[in-house]
Design a protein around this nucleic acid. Structure first.
Lengths: 193, 193
DNA sequence: AATTGTAACTAACAATCATTAGTTTTGAAC
DNA sequence: GTTCAAAACTAATGATTGTTAGTTACAATT
């Protein structure tokens, strides 16, 4: 029931908000806008959600956990760091394909989180990013990829993956296998020894 | 007088808005917020600007022209396409350093442009991006860099450059010469023949 | 001292904001 | 057909939104 992908009314609201928040931003989307989209009155929304901010918290918490869970699996896998990087690229691609609009919230709208919701989100994000960094660093130290400034390499890779949804929108006719190969070549091809 | 970098009151407003729009977004920033920051009343702002939307148009038009002007010079330079790509990276870096907050508007807030302002902005952006694409394509066709999917390579390079301001904020203690070298190695190193 | 233009002010505007309280409708289970 | 809960509704809240009109304060120029 807490799964934003179920077919309950609450889920419909969350799904609608993902799309609207992506299109107009959190601050640029009113409860009126959301209600209009669902064909109900704004007040009726509160039978299903407790506040506008609550919607954002719910969506971003769901999104952040997709990545944290994926990272958990990759971390514990018995492959070298280069292969882990490849699996991270595949993880981002899969989530982007399955939750394209949600990626826009992860890229931009998280800034409108407040208080405890913001703190919780940043905790998850920092955890994920640190794990990512460690894997990238490990790949360098083990001579799997060229040594270079780790922070700038990490930034570039993650930024490309984070914003990949905006590219995917316009090129979703390509096969996922091809896209995955392109991404790996692009992000790791230049780094590999 | 139309230069947002002069010291007039109008310029102060534009500069303040760049910072506030970056922090809270266009929709998330009220005229009250802007006035507070300047120590005046909201109504007084209208002695200098004609509307909130006008501010956004002004800022993004200024920003877009920085890139279009830079591209003009690079296009007409008598160097090969790989060197042009290097100069484009340097251009992005220079603008990022000189107008860090403005880059946030170029990355995100342009979506809140309306009507004619939006159309004008997209015209400039498309012009710039097409020129960029042509140079990248030329570099591939002339065998200066490895052949690969042009759209995904273009996307990745431009996305990294577009969001570089968020990285630069936290690492501005590094010398520009070093950063430029890192970026070139990262974005082109893997592509070069 | 009078004039002028600039830029601040107060006060008000209608519109919209997120949200609450209280009420009615709906639809399924009995 | 009655019961009951879920979910819609109406109506209203106080706050805030961007913006306009009209007025006053200021500083420089005549």
């Amino acid at each position: 029931m807490n799964n934003p992908l179920s077919t309950s009314k609450r889920a419909q609201i969350l799904l609608t908000c993902t799309r609207l928040f992506r299109k107009s931003g959190y601050a640029g989307t009113s409860m009126q806008d959301i209600a209009n989209e669902l064909g109900i009155k704004p007040a009726s929304l509160y039978n299903h959600i407790s506040s506008k901010q609550d919607i954002l918290v719910e969506l971003l918490s769901f999104g952040a956990n997709l990545f944290v869970d994926g990272m958990k699996e990759i971390k514990s896998s018995k492959v070298n760091e280069l292969q882990k990087l490849e699996r991270l690229i595949a993880l981002h691609l899969r989530i982007t394909v399955e939750h394209t609009d949600l990626m826009a919230l992860i890229a931009v709208e998280w800034r409108h989180l407040e208080g405890e919701g913001l703190r919780e989100y940043l905790k998850l994000r920092n955890s994920y990013e640190n794990d990512f960094r460690i894997i990238l660093k490990g790949a360098m130290e083990n001579g799997l990829i060229h040594a270079m400034d780790i922070e700038i390499a990490f930034f570039s890779i993650l930024t490309t993956l984070k914003w990949f949804y905006s590219w995917y929108d316009k090129h979703s006719q390509l096969s996922m296998v091809d896209i995955e190969e392109y991404l790996k070549q692009l992000l790791l091809g230049g780094l590999k020894i």
